[in-house]
Design a protein around this nucleic acid. Structure first.
Lengths: 109, 109
DNA sequence: GAACTATAAGTCGATCAGCGACATGTAGTC
DNA sequence: GACTACATGTCGCTGATCGACTTATAGTTC
């Protein structure tokens, strides 16, 4: 399982519990420190994919304050996939940062 | 500047000094711990892009042991872009890993 | 010497995630 | 009545990646 940044943060918003689509968009922006601005086009396509891969399950549509909502929940598989991806990202970041540091003094340009 | 994994590792191979295309492919696999297998289609398209964005410069074609080669070198801008991306990756990995740890005991599924 | 593997360059068409624009509707504020 | 925020979703375009292909040399194995 491999994620692009928007999908990664979208799924990550579900770690603390189920959320509905609109909330995912807002929370993803927070989590990513303003880096990721999910378009709805991205969101719903991504959720479809995640559902078909068993990473996420969709709840029933319900009404909250006169508005339609549908919650999405992370599965155990989803959690593991996120864990694995978080490890890959950390490792990728660390590896390159280390190389950059190592060559900083030796070859400034 | 934002990178997908293959582009990120391809550029990262140039941190230690210029390399030619074939070497980039091999080194990227190493650096990414076998995660990234650059296809040549990806490689040369990515290099074109990086050159046009001033992240990389291409050297002249030369002969080495009867084989044509062309080296690619990372620019200062390329280095900074990599640095920034490495930071983003580390941060993205850290953020999610922390959330996963925090909820591990509280909500196991 | 024919076949095969490794080294080296590159092109091209298909796929697929993400993006922006659009459509639809409610609740609340100016 | 207009505008903003909340909430759902669809659709067509773009652009990075991928796999297959082409071309060519050097070295090894049968």
């Amino acid at each position: 399982m491999e994620f692009r940044r928007p999908s990664y943060f979208a799924l990550a918003t579900l770690i603390d519990g189920p959320l509905h689509g609109y909330a995912i968009v807002q929370r993803a922006a927070e989590l990513s420190d303003g880096d990721v601005h999910l378009s709805t086009g991205t969101l719903y396509a991504l959720l479809e994919r995640a559902i078909s891969e068993g990473l996420v399950v969709a709840g029933e549509i319900y009404l909250e304050g006169g508005r339609q909502r549908r919650d999405y929940r992370l599965t155990d598989n989803g959690r593991s996939a996120l864990q694995a991806e978080a490890d890959r990202l950390s490792s990728a970041g660390r590896t390159v940062a280390r190389r950059l540091r190592a060559t900083a003094r030796v070859a400034p340009r």
